[in-house]
C-alpha cells in the first residue's frame, strides 16, 4: 500500500527557520535508510505558508487567499510518499524519524486509496458509470 506521510508545521517551520546542520544530517541518514529499504517513492520539504496561496471555492466563485495561514498545527511542512506493506510498518518507520522540528512536532500517515478499496462497494455497473464520468472529466 502507498501512504503519504505528512510532517506537520510548527511555529518554527512557519517562520521559515531552516533545520540545523545536525538535523539535516540526521534526516539525510534517515532518508538513506528509507531508500535502502526500498520504500521511498518521493518526498520533499515545503516552504512556509507565508509563500502559499489558497483558492476558495463557493459555487462558481473562486477567491484567492494569500498566506500565511493561521491554524499552524493543521498545516503541512513536508511530505513523503512511501510504499509499505501495512500501517504497522509505516508507523514503525515514522517512529525512527528524527524529530523533524526543534520543539514538539507531529507526523501524520495517510493511506492512499487503492483499487481494492473500492472493489467491495463498487458493482460492475457502478464502476462503469464511475469510469465513464472520469473519462468525461479527463476529456478522453
Amino acid at each position: 500500500m502507498r501512504v503519504v506521510v505528512f510532517v506537520k508545521a510548527t511555529e518554527d517551520s512557519e517562520q521559515g527557520i531552516l533545520p540545523s546542520t545536525e538535523l539535516l544530517e540526521a534526516m539525510g541518514k534517515y532518508n538513506e535508510e528509507l531508500a535502502n529499504a526500498g520504500i521511498m517513492l518521493d518526498g520533499d520539504g515545503l516552504k512556509p505558508t507565508s509563500q502559499a496561496k489558497r483558492v476558495a471555492f463557493d459555487g462558481a466563485s473562486r477567491a484567492v487567499i494569500d498566506g500565511p495561514f493561521a491554524e499552524t498545527r493543521e498545516l503541512v511542512a513536508g511530505f513523503w510518499l512511501w510504499e509499505v506493506k501495512d500501517m504497522d510498518e509505516a508507523v514503525a518507520w515514522v517512529k525512527r524519524c528524527p524529530n523533524p522540528m526543534p520543539g514538539p512536532s507531529e507526523i501524520e500517515i495517510r493511506p492512499i486509496y487503492e483499487m481494492a478499496d473500492f472493489a467491495e462497494n463498487l458493482s460492475p455497473a457502478a464502476a462503469e458509470i464511475h469510469d465513464r464520468t472520469r473519462d468525461k472529466l479527463s476529456g478522453a
Binding site: 538513506e32 535502502n36 529499504a37
Partner: peptide, 11 residues
C-alpha cells in the same frame, strides 16, 4: 518486486 528493485538500486 519493485521494492526489491529499489532496495538493490540504493545499494
Amino acid at each position: 518486486a519493485q521494492r526489491l528493485g529499489r532496495m538493490l538500486a540504493a545499494r
